[in-house]
């Protein structure tokens, strides 16, 4: 895919503790422009925490996160501008309940990027069309199915024209028949050259979409490599054991 060598985000020895509980012990990796990185691993391993630290929903307790070479954890760094460039799609969609589909996709553009209403609407409509939700622009979130909500959430995120888009298990809260529609949208996004970091339990999808796969367990990156290396020739024992649970399924 359209991968380059330009590093957008660089995590250096990032750590995170909740009190005495050290959740992330030492996380270091780079994200290149246009790269699709998937993160897999056992439950409680620290995948979500890693993503949440990247866009500062959680404050890392140690280490460094560089965005275009600048440490975002430094005091005085403009965090809100940074966040507007790093989109996030949540497991529970988290659409704004008080706004309809179109407004959900416009509000960030207007408030944060200071786009005009017309421009924001135009961009929102384009992206809603991309995810197939343009017939529902007036609907409120609670009137939509989970799959539809998640597609709107993706449209909301890409309407901000982010440099990186983070997904935290975007299909885990969905009924099985709705998983496909969301994965299709993500697949389509991947071809546009957008940089994506995806935490997922959909192994087949991870294998087909990724440029690189990270295996995180117990707060460290146990193994990383190309989809072939990780899925077909895992070296680490933990990775092998984890993947053997998915053997029966085809990926």
């Amino acid at each position: 895919m359209t991968e380059s060598n330009e590093v957008i985000l660089s995590l250096k020895h990032m750590q995170k503790s909740y009190g005495a509980h050290k959740v992330l012990k030492d996380i270091s990796f780079d994200i290149n422009k246009g790269e699709i990185v998937t993160i897999i691993g056992p439950s409680g391993g620290g995948k979500s925490t890693t993503l949440r630290c990247i866009n500062l929903l959680e404050e890392p307790t140690d280490g460094e996160i560089d965005f275009h070479g600048e440490n975002i954890l430094a005091p005085g760094y403009n965090r809100n501008t940074f966040r507007s460039k790093v989109g996030m799609v949540f497991q529970q969609f988290d659409l704004f309940e008080n706004k309809n589909v179109l407004e959900n996709c416009m509000i960030g553009q207007e408030l944060v990027l200071k786009r005009s209403k017309d421009e924001a609407r135009k961009i929102a409509m384009e992206n809603l069309k991309k995810v197939g939700m343009d017939p529902f622009i007036k609907a409120k979130p609670q009137q939509l199915s989970g799959g539809q909500q998640q597609r709107v959430a993706i449209a909301r995120a890409i309407s901000m024209n982010p440099e990186v888009l983070l997904f935290d298990e975007p299909t885990s809260a969905l009924d099985p028949e709705m998983v496909g529609e969301v994965l299709d949208v993500m697949q389509k996004l991947a071809t546009t050259g957008l940089t994506m970091v995806i935490v997922t339990h959909e192994m087949g999808f991870a294998k087909s979409i990724s440029d690189r796969v990270l295996f995180i367990s117990d707060g460290i990156i146990t193994e990383q490599g190309s989809p072939d290396q990780i899925f077909d020739h895992p070296k680490n024992e933990k990775t092998q054991k984890f993947l053997s649970n998915f053997r029966k399924m085809d990926f």
Partner: peptide
């Protein structure tokens, strides 16, 4: 709701 708004940079 709060986190989604934070993630947009509000």
């Amino acid at each position: 709701q709060f986190e989604a708004a934070s993630a947009l940079g509000m």
